[in-house]
Design a binder for these strands. Structure first.
Lengths: 292, 292
DNA sequence: ATTCATTGGTGCGTACTTACACCAATGCTT
DNA sequence: AAGCATTGGTGTAAGTACGCACCAATGAAT
């Protein structure tokens, strides 16, 4: 009876190359994968995988099973997507994938209001750093910041968001020009490209911090200049824009969903909500003074 | 973990329209199907099936799942076929589907010899009346008697098999012409088409018997004329060909396999064996006297 | 060379799923 | 209209599969 689930094990083994990795992907114990693979080999009277250089690889006979499992997975994901797209209810789970900074510093109040307006919808925020895969139903909608048009997703490109140069209020006055430093990213060069576009193209990178929030905190503590999103820094107490620094329009803001799910009322209502909420904050996002 | 197996339940429910029918198709208890369907609905937070006029039908939301399950099934069958086609061994299970009469009266000794020559091959004879579906791996090879070319199977058309008119030795001498009767099929008319081609086109059908072996026994018992395969009746003690009755060539004999499995040595060797064994009996099958 | 981490396999107790009942409800046949 | 067959649902006991251990083996890092 558990014949088709074996294909999931085959797929997980092929992808991870180890019994323990496959078990993790399937959220089961590695003993389960080990035993079920053994049972599968016994049932098929042939080895599906062989261990080569410490890695599980499909045998010649196993390869068709892997290919079949891939097609089954595709069919299963498509089926679940299409089913979700036909859901006419305004209740249940609804997942939005978006950059954590956007969630925290730009849309937190709006998302709270959305939950209040739709109390039966269980909104789930997915703020993993990697983009959610809507094909695999990791999310119903994504708010993506990118200059590349999305593969096959549908939705709207809104406008570009702006970044500019910020620092703690007295950092510039208290620091000799030669000791000025940028707060950069771990893989930045001494004078990366983005520095060239700022008002301090000759200041080198000092501390390199991956996490945006930590980089932000470092700037607050007066440890350097930060090139940060205006919607974050302009509203942050304890940071001022460097005099003369203009907002630099960077990547586009996209609100996207999968074509299969566009028609679902739940998805559509959050889509419109996000577009409106973001559009209302266009001035802030593009780094224009709120008084203008 | 048993996520993909639910698609098997969906498919079985869609096809049979009842919980008990689906359970039978899956070889499980109907309570299992009932509970797993309930669990699935709970997990998806939506009904996949609804009962309309006493029959389970997929709901609007369920239809994509059924479509997905169909594609998954197709992928699973294709994967297993391709894997079986790569099997290089000369051992293990090998299934041949063929008409029971052919197995019993024509190839029984040959098939026994095949098993003797290949002791590690577990030959399985599949003599269901309906054609085995090679796509679904119900058999590795089929011996089919038909005038229609096979859909997408590959193999060889050999030659037509012959039928002629037989009866018990003294049936004709002991029966008045007006009381002669054909032994026919249940759905035969009084004077069906096939009677017209015989030497007794004006003799009506008497007893109507579905099973070929039983019809054969009825002829042996002197209950009528029988229009039977020459390879059956010519070798049967107790039946004689009606004087003047010629063999009538009927449908073609095909030996077929699935393209995916043609290359497997096990399949190829049985294929060649069958072609040779049948060809050696061409005279018998075409109803020509053995002395010619 | 030694230590350490990671791998896959196996015994064991538990928890879950299943089959076997029996049940009420519905539809078909007589 | 009444009897019968078939349907889907549920309680219970048995069987199976699972997770948690612990194990030896292998490879990586110091």
């Amino acid at each position: 009876m558990n014949a088709w689930d074996d294909y999931r094990i085959i797929l997980a083994l092929e992808r991870s190359g180890s019994v323990r990795g496959a078990a993790q992907a399937l959220s089961v114990n590695h003993a389960t994968v080990s035993r079920r693979l053994a049972a599968l080999n016994r049932r098929l009277d042939a080895a599906v995988f062989e261990r080569i250089e410490g890695r599980y690889r499909a045998t010649a006979q196993g390869k068709p099973l892997v290919a079949g499992a891939l097609r089954m997975e595709e069919a299963a994901y498509a089926a679940e997507r299409e089913m979700a797209g036909l859901d006419q209810s305004m209740s249940g789970r609804l997942t939005l994938s978006l950059p954590d900074v956007v969630a925290k510093c730009l849309l937190m109040e709006d998302l709270g209001r959305f939950c209040h307006e739709h109390p039966d919808i269980e909104l789930v925020l997915h703020t993993s750093h990697s983009f959610a895969d809507l094909d695999r139903r990791e999310a119903d909608l994504v708010l993506r910041i990118s200059n590349h048009p999305p593969d096959h997703l549908v939705g709207r490109r809104l406008f570009k968001y702006a970044r500019s140069c910020y620092c703690a209020p007295h950092y510039l006055a208290n620091t000799a020009f030669a000791r000025l430093r940028w707060l950069g990213w771990p893989d930045d060069a001494d004078r990366p490209e983005w520095v060239q576009e700022t008002v301090f193209p000759d200041v080198p990178v000092g501390m390199r911090i991956e996490d945006p929030m930590v980089r932000h905190a470092a700037a607050l503590a007066g440890h350097g200049l930060i090139f940060d999103a205006c919607f974050v820094a302009d509203r942050a107490a304890g940071l001022v824009r460097v005099p003369g620094a203009l907002p630099i329009l960077d990547r586009d803001i996209w609100v996207l969903t999968h074509p299969d799910m566009k028609a679902a009322p739940k998805v559509a209502v959050l889509f419109r909500f996000l577009v409106e909420a973001i559009s209302l904050k266009r001035g802030l996002i593009e780094g224009r003074p709120a008084t203008a």
